[in-house]
């Protein structure tokens, strides 16, 4: 290609690379235990809802406060506080991706992503459960 366009191309590419390298703090998938060791660091945690502990959400008093306990596959557990409304189908989800950081002994969550078995219904266990509910068998 032409010389000047190559120069411009390299210029733009290096600009983008520069932004990425200096301006972006890519996060890490972490475990609860290692997140607890480095409080204040923004991480992603893959965990599931601890169903033995209560979910606290009282929209009348404060619709922007949700508290629950999460447990990850290595057995680490923590209280999670999420300043937003309770995500739909949270109890049904089999996996939660929590984004946030450890703070004062709890996980201060800024975003929750739910993985629901029902979402695209391609999960056989879910179909089986549904069938049993319907047929009473």
């Amino acid at each position: 290609m032409k010389k000047s366009s190559i120069i411009i191309l390299i210029g733009i590419a290096s600009l983008i690379v520069g932004i990425l390298v200096y301006g972006v703090d890519f996060s890490t998938y972490s475990t609860i235990t290692s997140a607890q060791k480095s409080p204040g660091k923004f991480v992603h945690i893959i965990a599931s809802l601890d169903k033995t502990q209560p979910i606290q959400y009282d929209p009348i008093n404060n619709p922007n406060y949700l508290s629950f306990y999460a447990v990850d596959s290595l057995g680490g557990t923590t209280q999670v506080i999420y300043h937003n409304s309770k995500p739909t189908d949270m109890e049904k989800s089999d996996r939660l991706v929590l984004k946030g950081k450890m703070e004062n002994g709890h996980f201060e969550c800024s975003d929750i992503l739910l993985k629901c078995p029902s979402k695209y219904k391609d999960n056989k266990n879910n179909l089986e459960r549904n069938l049993k509910e319907q047929t009473g068998n």
């Binding site: 972006v24 703090d25 890490t28």
Partner: peptide, 22 residues
């Protein structure tokens, strides 16, 4: 290099937006 599996930064939309605004 990264010390763990790579994940999107805290504000992923901003990562896209600041490049796309250019």
């Amino acid at each position: 290099l990264h010390g763990g599996p790579l994940a999107l930064p805290e504000d992923p939309e901003f990562l896209y937006n600041k490049v796309m605004v250019l």
